[in-house]
């Protein structure tokens, strides 16, 4: 009889562990797929994949976060204006969903800022006025929740880079920020497995273009 209960309990646990394993496997699969993206369709598939995981695991913020992240990237990659807006609309829903359960997660605020940046990119004349303050506010909040997160600094640097000098932008102001972000990237350790790690390589590229101009 004891064995029977023991086995049942073991079985129960194995199922539970299985669920946790499923989640970890799914995250592993999604993130490794993300590194091997070939085409726009692959982006769509990954966004869809993480969305499915986010629906199955309503208490985890990472799947919604990654699905939103890929949707923002899709908005940058596609050409059609309506499609871009549609991807951003999807991203917003997912970000808000992630934010609901994890309001204090710096990475989610960072992503929301990136979402506003993408919106500004659609029509800078109109959306610039509406959203540049909002993007800045998100990065501000992201740093408040985690001062060591390099991504808000890196994304802000990109904004500064693309802002004309007259409005307080330009390379001269952006490069020290890329430098700061790059420094922070080298020390950055994600809190837990699967936490966001992107941005370091792109930041280095920007930094390189900074040093190139400096040499000229």
């Amino acid at each position: 009889m004891r064995t029977f209960y023991f086995l049942l309990i073991a079985l129960f646990f194995s199922i539970n562990i299985g669920a946790q394993q499923n989640f970890e496997e799914a995250m592993q699969k999604g993130l490794s797929d993300m590194e091997n993206i070939q085409s726009l369709e692959d982006f769509v598939e990954i966004a869809n994949f993480f969305e499915r995981v986010s629906v199955a695991e309503p208490n985890e913020w990472l799947p919604a976060y990654y699905s939103a992240y890929v949707n923002v990237i899709l908005a940058f990659k596609t050409q059609d204006m309506e499609e871009k807006k549609a991807y951003l609309g999807k991203a917003e829903v997912l970000i808000d969903k992630a934010m609901e359960t994890n309001e204090k997660e710096s990475e989610i605020h960072t992503l929301k800022g990136m979402y506003y940046q993408a919106y500004i990119g659609l029509d800078p004349m109109n959306y610039g006025q509406l959203y540049s303050g909002k993007a800045a506010a998100c990065f501000n909040d992201a740093l408040e929740y985690n001062p060591d997160n390099p991504r808000p600094i890196y994304l802000q640097a990109i904004s500064v880079m693309h802002t004309p000098e007259q409005y307080g932008g330009g390379k001269q102001r952006a490069c020290p920020m890329f430098n700061q972000a790059s420094e922070m990237f080298t020390h950055f350790k994600p809190e837990k497995p699967f936490y966001p790690q992107w941005g370091a390589d792109q930041c280095e590229q920007y930094l390189q273009s900074c040093t190139e101009t400096a040499q000229k």
């Binding site: 499923n22 769509v44 598939e45 869809n48 994949f49 499915r52 629906v55 199955a56």
Partner: peptide
């Protein structure tokens, strides 16, 4: 996808 599971496709 099937709601509440990881089963799904594009």
């Amino acid at each position: 996808y099937l709601k509440g599971t990881y089963i799904g496709a594009t």
